[in-house]
Simulated assay, not measured.
Amino acid sequence: MVDAFDWGLLEPAGADAAVVADDRILHAMIELERAHLVAWGGLLGVETTSTLDADLLDREALLRESRQAGVPVVGLAQALRQQGGTLVHQGMTSQDVLDTALMVVSRDALVGARTRLGEAGRRFAALVREHRPTPFAVRTLMQEAETTTLGAVLSGWLDAITSALEVLDAVEFPLQLGGAVGDGEAFARLSGDPDAVAKLRRRIAAAVGLTDPGRAWHTDRSPVLAVTRAAASVCTAGGRIGRDLGLLARDEVVTPLHGGGSSAMPHKKNPVDAVLLVANGLRVSGPLAVVQTASLSYDARPAGEWHAEWQAWRECLRLGAESAALLAHAAEDLVVHIRRAHVDPAKPPRATATVDAALARFERAVEGGDR
């Protein structure tokens, strides 16, 4: 029995990131191997079975092989060949499998994050409309500055969400398929078809729901950077809103309906969503920096850079998925307490243009993504 190293004890919002768990990555690797087996068999004119079952794997053995080879795919391919025959994994390399699996998981995580961001944005948009005329004294450099409207303040949150949505919508999730050194020659040699890798890439990409990039990107890590930066943009939006939520909760302007408790002060209702959103916004810079640094690749596969990327890539996705879920929950859990602000009767705050622009921009982003 494999003991779980990380079951969420120090990750309070971890349940919202199950989409990037080890089991999901394992299933994504098998999904790729299955799609490759079917496509490869079709290209060779050989009958194959698409039945590759994760439940039949010996996970203890898989971990041992992973430690031995330094990558989990070697042992996985050996085990799957016992189920599906010698054509399993033929022509591919470990990087094809792991990069593609992480792209599948990235797609699922970020599509889910986009849905939750949309939910949060719709709730904030309703509050923006409701509090469009509500006077509110804002601060700059921690000091009270001028009176605007609460709707204008909330429209800033909506803008942050819209920015994250736009980044997410620009991301593509490409298949990785290039063979040992990225040139795809093994597929051509084994099949006798000089266009084998292009044909396989199209078929496999369609099967696993990724885009066909028309190339291998083994040492061009721009697709990974795009995905992780998109996840980080969700964390940034969440952290920015979380800071405001925490400060407004301190002033009892906006508070959570269901706050968190304290082990020493039972009277407290802590703004837990706000705290965790800020924490994730602070944490994401670390793994993002690892991905950025590791992108300075070399040779056909670098010694260490690619390996450093795996957990950092997954951590960015994990934090992005958590932050999107936290935002959606925080938006639904808000209670606004109207407080009087000093207003010059001759100059009532309006901020109409700011509010209208934020609402229109959000609606365009949501509608564009929904289509």
Results as ranks from 00 to 15, higher is better:
65 E>T: 09
39 A>L: 07
53 D>F: 11
43 L>C: 11
67 R>Y: 02
54 A>M: 04
52 L>S: 07
60 E>D: 13
61 A>H: 11
39 A>V: 03
34 R>D: 07
53 D>S: 14
35 A>K: 02
49 T>L: 10
50 S>W: 01
45 G>L: 09
34 R>T: 14
47 E>D: 12
45 G>N: 04
62 L>R: 07
56 L>Q: 12
45 G>C: 10
72 P>S: 10
50 S>R: 06
40 W>S: 02
42 G>S: 12
62 L>C: 10
50 S>Q: 08
59 R>G: 10
41 G>M: 04
40 W>E: 01
72 P>M: 11
58 D>L: 12
50 S>H: 05
45 G>D: 01
65 E>A: 15
64 R>K: 08
71 V>T: 08
38 V>Y: 03
69 A>P: 00
41 G>W: 01
67 R>G: 13
36 H>K: 08
40 W>A: 03
37 L>D: 01
50 S>G: 15
65 E>D: 13
65 E>C: 10
60 E>R: 15
56 L>I: 00
53 D>E: 12
59 R>A: 12
68 Q>C: 08
72 P>Q: 06
44 L>F: 03
38 V>M: 08
61 A>Y: 03
63 L>G: 06
38 V>F: 04
71 V>Y: 09
42 G>P: 05
65 E>S: 15
55 D>A: 15
52 L>T: 01
55 D>E: 12
67 R>P: 00
51 T>C: 09
42 G>R: 13
57 L>F: 05
54 A>S: 14
34 R>L: 07
53 D>G: 13
52 L>H: 05
53 D>Y: 08
69 A>N: 07
49 T>V: 12
65 E>M: 11
63 L>R: 13
69 A>R: 02
45 G>A: 13
64 R>E: 10
71 V>L: 09
43 L>H: 11
36 H>T: 01
49 T>E: 00
50 S>E: 11
58 D>C: 11
58 D>V: 09
66 S>N: 10
50 S>P: 00
49 T>P: 00
63 L>T: 11
41 G>C: 11
72 P>T: 09
45 G>Q: 05
49 T>Y: 02
49 T>D: 00
36 H>M: 05
45 G>H: 04
65 E>F: 04
34 R>Q: 06
61 A>S: 12
66 S>T: 15
42 G>C: 12
38 V>K: 10
38 V>Q: 07
47 E>L: 13
69 A>S: 14
37 L>I: 13
72 P>G: 11
66 S>H: 05
38 V>A: 13
43 L>I: 07
56 L>Y: 02
47 E>Q: 14
37 L>H: 05
36 H>D: 00
34 R>E: 05
34 R>F: 06
66 S>F: 05
60 E>G: 15
58 D>M: 09
38 V>S: 10
72 P>R: 08
52 L>I: 01
61 A>L: 15
46 V>R: 14
46 V>E: 15
57 L>E: 00
60 E>Y: 07
49 T>F: 04
59 R>F: 11
60 E>C: 14
47 E>R: 14
58 D>K: 05
54 A>H: 03
66 S>C: 14
61 A>C: 03
50 S>L: 03
45 G>E: 01
70 G>T: 06
61 A>T: 04
35 A>N: 02
59 R>P: 01
61 A>V: 03
66 S>G: 15
